[in-house]
Design a protein around this nucleic acid. Structure first.
Lengths: 398, 398
DNA sequence: CTCGATAAGTTCAGTCGCCAAACTATTGGG
DNA sequence: CCCAATAGTTTGGCGACTGAACTTATCGAG
């Protein structure tokens, strides 16, 4: 059993610091008095904590508010966009991406470097990654911003407890300690480095920047190579007991169906991933499929429809099991959204038990292929916003 | 968004009180010094908190420990079995069950009253339940124990946020506020009353009393009427976003298959629930099926095997999605365990991706039909153990 | 223009729970 | 009999929040 920690006054301050910052993050432009009202803390306490947050340049004082009626005006507080940034890194089979995201979740800088990483040794790939990270750090230095944390998105199973990348089939890696490697190779010694599965982090990006506002519970699916899924429950990424959660590709959706690499038959992945759709539509690649769809070719439209059924079958089971009211389509599926959404919604409505009471949303991700890097950076920013006191303490002694 | 609460010193004490009690619960017979070591608190703090817990009769001083070597002996501390009890209530279609469980999780008293509750009005049934609760409270009074909380298991969807029983198909109920009704009818005014889905609470009972020691992550399935499932993740009951989680009965496992009441085809429930097995085995009821199995009748054995496949298909999807390493068979499935476990394990081993690395346990519940009531009572006890300070404050002013 | 009403933000003594360290109590061994 | 070792208690101090009084800022009415 993981032992919970004893609490002391410092714990109280940590909690309340996070509470105050959270209130400011949630509604920008709040005054100290407003924060006090929304958190339940006293004005005195809020003042102290805001001073602390401002000193660490997490919060910015934006001058007096507009108000009508008598009384002194409050000072607008908001997250400081020039405060610490989160560094996002994505290691994919064909590229390495990096970006810098500010506290408000805005992407302030990003870069993608093509790289043939498939079946390359970890050392070689991590060398490339270290270079890209160095460039990002240089950019941050040029802008005079502190990098407060880093997140790395990887295409494989990440063990939550250890941070180890257990298996990455497409890279051919096994048991690689990515954070340790990057800390050593790329001058990230003083920064917290998180790793996460690429599909899970894409889901998190969707929550943070997707603009489906108010939707705090959904399943995010994207179908590039295989099918990646990520769960967001109650505004938090849910990644299972050991962090392996969200494996959806091998859902058995057809007792017959083609054989899969996993040994079973009728896996979702073989029926609804990008490759399966292209094959059925007799399209050589995604652009040509999209072209065919736009000109309304029956074969292409039918291929997408055919993928919607098994996808809907699998997702409806997830929705029934976890009681989630929305599905977000990302990656390739986002581009197919106009043709995919309706048949998918039909299938879900038919199969989800709660559908008659609360209709199911099938949403489209606006983030495209950048979702995973953004999610990685956002998860780094999250660690600061969710626990500012630790960040302040760390930057104080550094 | 649900607003988190501000923290103060009282929050610290609450947290540490729970920490100390948790340490004692986890390893009975610990001394104050032992608690201090395992929690990280100082001996001074532990002493204060233990006094507090002892004054509320949550913790009992059991005299000096045995130790070898020099030094003063510590005093053994353990959960007080004569401290507050949890009251468990189960409202089923054919009976009402009640029980009293002490802080250690032992059932100290229980009673089952047959009752034809199917399709009866809530008022009528709750009248019966109130009577059973009154009898349980009288028994508690006779024993001189305080009832510190109550849990009610119901066969339907319970909304976590409101505690409302949204739908109970087998009872024919809709939107019933069970806690409020019971508080009003059964003299439970001063006691916290929790409601939960019967399958989820059975899973919780399994965690608490099932004796699969060390297993803190599993799916619990039982097949009486329909198929009920409950998830335990990291030693906590997981009941989904709104508390509707664990719906497994309508997993689509066969694209053909018989039509189901939900409108779809090939639902797990129609293929693997008790009724389906009996029908296939041509057995009139469960006892006769068990008899046939014990005398090795091929038709009966084949029927159970036939149910194992779809069950395994559905469960493997859950295991892949949530990364859980064990399945516990309860209710009817527990009785079929000798014939069901092996084919089920085979199916799971074939389909679960992580199986080659960590084998999947298929365990048998020893709790029988009492699981749900016990789980209800245990969940009531849990609220005390997980937050003793609130209990102490409440009993102090009462 | 001044004064009163209203609201934001600050200051300060008070309270509460934890901590560190010193102290008392108990036990086995030389 | 005294010492080393361990359990538990007492005491003074500290940090973080609270409540209430106080200062600052703004508007509108006379």
């Amino acid at each position: 059993m993981i032992h919970p920690r004893p609490a002391g006054q410092h714990t109280v301050r940590r909690h309340n610091c996070a509470l105050v910052l959270g209130a400011i993050a949630e509604s920008s432009g709040l005054s100290r008095a407003g924060v006090a009202a929304s958190t339940g803390l006293t004005k005195a306490t809020v003042s102290t904590l805001v001073d602390r947050l401002a000193a660490a340049s997490l919060v910015r004082d934006e001058g007096p508010q507009r108000r009508d009626g008598p009384g002194r005006r409050g000072t607008s507080l908001s997250l400081n966009p020039d405060g610490p940034h989160g560094l996002g890194v994505e290691i994919a089979v064909d590229h390495v991406a990096t970006c810098l995201v500010d506290l408000t979740g805005q992407v302030r800088w990003s870069r993608v470097s093509p790289a043939a990483n498939r079946a390359q040794s970890p050392g070689r790939v991590l060398g490339r990654v270290a270079k890209a990270v160095a460039a990002a750090l240089a950019e941050a230095a040029r802008r005079g911003v502190v990098v407060g944390g880093a997140g790395v998105a990887v295409p494989g199973l990440v063990e939550a407890s250890t941070g180890l990348l257990r298996r990455a089939p497409n890279l051919g890696w096994q048991d690689v300690d990515v954070p340790a490697e990057l800390r050593a190779r790329a001058g990230l010694e003083s920064v917290e480095v998180l790793v996460g599965n690429e599909a899970n982090l894409a889901a998190y990006a969707e929550l943070q920047a997707g603009g489906h506002d108010g939707v705090r519970d959904f399943v995010h699916v994207s179908g590039e190579i295989g099918i990646g899924a990520g769960l967001v429950l109650g505004g938090e990424l849910y990644d299972g007991t050991r962090g392996f959660g969200g494996e959806l590709g091998h859902f058995p959706v057809s007792s017959r169906g083609p054989e899969c690499s996993c040994g079973a038959r009728g896996c979702l992945e073989r029926l609804a991933a990008q490759e399966a759709i292209l094959e059925r539509a007799a399209a050589p690649d995604l652009p040509s499929l999209l072209g065919a769809l736009e000109s309304g070719e029956r074969k292409a439209v039918a291929a997408v429809r055919a993928a919607a059924r098994p996808l809907g079958t699998a997702l409806s089971s997830v929705l029934n099991l976890l009681d989630v009211p929305a599905v977000v389509l990302g990656g390739t599926y986002a581009r197919l959204h106009p043709w995919l959404a309706e048949p998918l919604r039909e299938e879900l409505t038919r199969r989800v038990l709660g559908a008659p009471w609360s209709p199911i949303d099938v949403l489209c991700s606006p983030l495209g292929t950048e979702a995973a890097v953004r999610g990685a950076a956002a998860s780094a920013v999250r660690t600061i916003v969710a626990d500012p006191d630790t960040f302040i303490a760390a930057s104080g002694r550094a």
